[in-house]
Design a protein around this nucleic acid. Structure first.
Lengths: 187, 187
DNA sequence: GTCTATAATACGATAGAC
DNA sequence: GTCTATCGTATTATAGAC
């Protein structure tokens, strides 16, 4: 009795990685099938269209994000939680410099498409998760302008990643994140 | 005696606008020819390839930027100049919210291409112009960490545009820019 | 210089054998 | 469920008449 095939999972993993590295528009289904070790024709047994797999990618990223929040939420204070959040960007600085932000990049690309409002909506909600979580943490810190702080922090992060990616210099991310960490410490 | 054709100029203008609105990957040469009122076949009389016209777009944007700097440099102090720079983002907030940053978006897209290092290099240099100009202004203000300030400001700007674009909310740009303006005022 | 074909190719998607 | 073969279409690019 054959084990249940893990090809769907492999395709999804391959799609997450490939779309991140090459961008959605420049990723072909052949690329995804290839890195996943699946024949192109077989791709369609698991996903009906290219849009369907990117939708699955968004759902998967959303799931990962929610589990990560669950972990952070175990930390004792919002201050510590925000610093844990910020430190992930330093830990991942090299990847972010090489490929940009997986959420920011996907949002930007899908936002340009007018033919799939559902997909645009889903990626917007995914992108906004960080903002909501940050806003919540600042509210717990009794900050009157919690939302503005969240926008300030997340703008800086996204912008720093874009600059680092364009200039191929991860120090931009590290410097800006360290500045934000100090800012939190002084709050 | 026929006037010299302005079709090259029209194609370039059309390309600038269309690539900005739809992104490079999702812009077809037919789109550009169409909005420019030029037959597709005729496109190739003026530009040999799609990459060649985006190269011209980059050069054109570079030229515009340099003239803008020349204007700003007439202003009496670096503080006033930086505020003039910042205010352009508020003036253009609706466009930026609808389409993202023309430089940031192009940089992001072309950065993913490994087959055209020259193009990647040119867009990187274009993107960096703002950073250089900002760094120079902060140096004139005798700021020890001029480069870090430039990174901080430009990261915030680029990130705010990305957030506004994704959430379709121009207030994010306006709020962040106003915060930066106040920051400059206090310097 | 301009236009009408049309070639060449890449890629999303399908058919059908196994 | 998996694979090979192939279709259909979009898009870059060219040929060649005018």
């Amino acid at each position: 009795m054959a084990r249940k095939s893990d090809k769907r999972e492999r395709l999804l993993e391959g799609a997450i990685e490939t779309i991140y590295q090459r961008g959605f528009n420049q990723t072909t289904l052949a690329d995804i099938a290839d890195v996943s070790g699946v024949q192109l024709g077989n791709f369609y047994y698991y996903f009906k269209t290219k849009d369907e797999i990117v939708e699955a990618v968004i759902a998967e990223r959303r799931g990962s994000l929610l589990s990560t929040y669950a972990e952070w939420d175990k930390l004792p204070s919002p201050k510590v939680r925000i610093k844990a959040f910020l430190n992930t960007y330093i830990d991942d600085a090299e990847n972010l410099t090489a490929n940009g932000c997986p959420l920011g990049g996907l949002s930007f690309e899908l936002n340009k498409r007018e033919d799939v409002p559902d997909l645009v909506d889903k990626v917007e909600k995914l992108f906004s998760l960080h903002l909501q979580w940050l806003t919540h943490q600042f509210k717990l810190m009794r900050k009157a302008k919690a939302e503005e702080f969240a926008d300030e922090f997340y703008s800086t992060i996204q912008g720093a990643i874009l600059l680092a990616n364009c200039k191929k210099d991860s120090r931009i991310i590290k410097n800006q994140i360290n500045r934000l960490i100090k800012l939190v410490d002084r709050m």
